[in-house]
Design a protein around this nucleic acid. Structure first.
Lengths: 182, 182, 182, 182
DNA sequence: GGGTAACCGAGACGGTACGTCCCGTCTTGAA
DNA sequence: TTCAAGACGGGACGTACCGTCTCGGTTACCC
């Protein structure tokens, strides 16, 4: 049943977005009674929270190519692929749909903390290999690389192809080396 | 009356986000009848569209410091300031709240087209000054600079202070020069 | 619309009794939206209250045969006929369905006050004619005559035929005269 | 446990009436699981049926004063006292709450049959003593005496004091003797 | 300067979804 | 075997907003 509700939530979220996500609709799609969802999850937000937790837990394997450049390129492509998938798009755009004090925002903080914790080893390995100076701000580096992809997808709708993604990686690496910024 | 409705929409949007934006609430705040809003605007989305058009039209003046670095730094700081303002935050996060085929998405495309058209002269001036090679993709450059700021605010909630903003500018400029990427 | 809702309420009440009277059912029968009933009436009790008010207002004409015996007999037969009609049965049994402090009870007090006020002239005319001593308690007299009919119908289900009704009248008249009780 | 459930049913019935009598509420009050009530009784109606059976079985002792007048007066006072007790009021008003074809009605028929069977010897003794003609309709006599009390309590809310009760008895006795009606 | 058209306030309505309460059924595990 | 514990499908509750409609009253414009 849990799986059916999750699948139904994804489907409904993909079709109608965070607005238009109706508990009754999810219940009907999942072949489950509305009350059951309120009992076991507790509302629209909890349904999405459940999806996010599942997504943050499993996710894709962190790439390990041997070089920071290769890792970042593969990782950013993973992110790009995830963002353009309609199901994930709807899920992630939900995170930005609430004000900073909403319960969705709290949800988002947890999600992002888990997400960055999973990606951080990639940078730490590069430090161990001597590719980056010790003390580099791993999170800021990731934000700088992933940010343009994220913005391109959710903002102006830029075509985020492989060339763009690799450009993000190379520019940040070169720029970081040149400016010495962390 | 138009002004009152706009102000009420901003207030309601800031308080409750795109969800929770109720036409009746806006009407009550503005001291206007619900019917009038449906007549003159046409629904929740149209209220937000009106705000976005107004925002895209006026906005802040494009900085002109004489150097690309200075322009981009000032511009990105403007963007940062705009994003952290609650009213704008709610307004802009609304754009990402719909699926790619929703009417909100169409709205977003228009908004971003106008926004980038307003910012593009900044890059073109740099080309004229010889700071950038002719044929550089102005939009991609802007996305690369602004993206991390946007992502930091709407995503993990990174502290986007002046140092971070200037880092975005310098890294992209240095990286672009080093890699020759457009 | 008001008429349709009233008719639907009577039908639903007759079929399922006070319990089982569902607002949604009434709305569906009347071809009206549920919300409209909540707006214009305000719930199950209000629907019944509306029926009672209508019933108390119109009702049947008070008999005027020229003698107290004839009046009471005709009146009690009217009451009997009303009680055995399924629609009225359900409506009136509703009055007894709540505790003495429920809102139904308050409703009942108003109904009975109106009902007795309408019947009282019958007794007063008899006093004017000299058939009854001045100062007789009209309400108590009516209760004594009507009570067995009411109880017979709502209680043990006694066969309340014309003979029984007329017996109620004659016994009370004779007994009242013999004992001098008011 | 049976006793606890019965007590809880009486309490709940007194507080909230037949409507508002929730099995879950009774179970919680009795410290018993909901399922148990459904197994051992079988629903709301069965709970009330159980109470009625118990009430019909035990009840108060039938008065035996030596005269019909004394017996009827004592009996009717007992009835009056029972009716005004909130617990009994709620229980008995339940009987009238259903349509004539409901299962509550069937329940009521059984209850009244038992009740009248218990009271009938009072009249039969009077016949044996010669106070009443043989062949008098005992049930009708009881209905005539008790009816006004019942109606006064459940209907208009008449003050049913001892004087009223005794009036009912005397008038019916005198009237019956005068008219010769059974 | 008076008709007329446009606009607004007011409010009722059909409708969807909300989140809750209680129903009656079922399964599982402990006594 | 009986009961406690608790999940579930289900029906109705009463509420909030949605978007539409009709009705009057004002304003303003144009003949």
């Amino acid at each position: 049943m849990t799986a059916a509700v999750r699948a139904a939530t994804v489907a409904a979220l993909t079709e109608h977005g965070w607005n238009g996500l109706a508990v009754e609709d999810v219940a009907a799609r999942a072949g489950v009674n509305k009350t059951t969802i309120y009992r076991r999850w507790g509302g629209r937000e909890a349904l999405v929270a459940d999806l996010l937790l599942a997504a943050a837990d499993q996710g894709t394997a962190l790439p390990d190519t041997g070089t920071l450049r290769g890792d970042l390129a593969a990782f950013t492509r993973q992110v790009r692929d995830a963002l353009v998938a309609p199901a994930n798009r709807a899920l992630l755009s939900t995170l930005a749909a609430g004000g900073p004090d909403s319960s969705l925002a709290e949800l988002g903080r947890g999600y992002w903390a888990a997400r960055f914790a999973r990606a951080r080893p990639m940078v730490e390995r590069a430090v161990d290999r001597g590719e980056l100076a010790a003390g580099v701000d791993a999170d800021a580096l990731i934000v700088r690389v992933v940010g343009p992809v994220w913005f391109g997808v959710f903002g102006p709708g830029t075509a985020v192809d492989d060339a763009f993604v690799e450009g993000c990686v190379e520019i940040v690496l070169a720029g970081t080396a040149a400016t010495g910024r962390r």
